[in-house]
Computed example of a mutant assay.
Amino acid sequence: MSRAAALQARWKALAPREQSLVLAAAGVVLLALLWWVALAPALGTLHQAPELHGKLDLQLQHMQRLQAEAQQLQAQPQTSPTDAVGALRAALTQRLGTAAQMNVLGDRVTVTLKGAPADAVAQWLALARTNARAVPVESRLTRSTAATPANAGPATLGNTGAAPVPRWDGTVVLALPAR
């Protein structure tokens, strides 16, 4: 006797009430399986959709800002290496003062930092990128162990005016724009 025939014979041997209970149990198992496999994951995704949509919107806005910045940089007129060096020197003096020294060798500029405030370095790098179109190609920076000078002004203190800002020692190598 085949397996299907054995099951059919066993089914017929069950009382009508037992057949109803077996069908009800099979229906409950089928519904539970349908819930776990099809509905619960879909409802979970639907529940998480607003949060994921918000995150994706933020990513899209960030990408659009980066695109606008790239288009703005592309729209700027070409900068000669001489103009780029002048713009770098001016930004360096304005943002970092005596905490940095600049050496130009061909199309590379090496900036040596000694106790330079981290926020001023970040601002200078942004200016170097936009005004001089210089691209950082190498950096070797370590957190400075030098103490904050006693005559530190607002540029070297944190927002509260009490805690000093981190400072950097090291070098940054920038590539100047090609002609």
Rank of each mutant, 00 (worst) to 15 (best):
N103T: 06
A132P: 01
G27E: 13
N159C: 07
W11P: 03
A120G: 06
Q64E: 15
L14N: 09
G153K: 02
R89K: 03
N131A: 15
Q67G: 07
L31Q: 11
A15T: 15
K114Y: 04
R133D: 00
Q123Y: 13
R179P: 15
T45W: 08
L113A: 01
Q71A: 13
L113E: 02
Q74G: 07
L56E: 08
A42M: 09
M63W: 11
A70P: 04
G106S: 03
T142A: 10
V28M: 08
G27F: 03
G44P: 05
V165S: 10
W168Y: 13
T45D: 12
T82K: 14
R65G: 12
R65W: 11
R108T: 02
Q61N: 11
D107H: 09
A40D: 08
P177L: 05
D119Q: 11
L60A: 13
D83V: 00
P117I: 04
G153A: 08
L21Y: 14
R143I: 07
N103W: 00
A38F: 13
L31W: 11
A163V: 15
V22F: 08
L58R: 14
L105K: 01
R3M: 10
L33V: 12
A5T: 07
P149A: 05
L34S: 13
V29W: 07
S20M: 15
E18T: 11
T110Y: 03
G86E: 05
G158I: 05
P164G: 00
A32L: 08
W124G: 02
L43C: 04
R17E: 15
T160D: 15
M102W: 00
W168E: 01
A120W: 01
L30Q: 02
A13H: 04
A100G: 09
L73I: 05
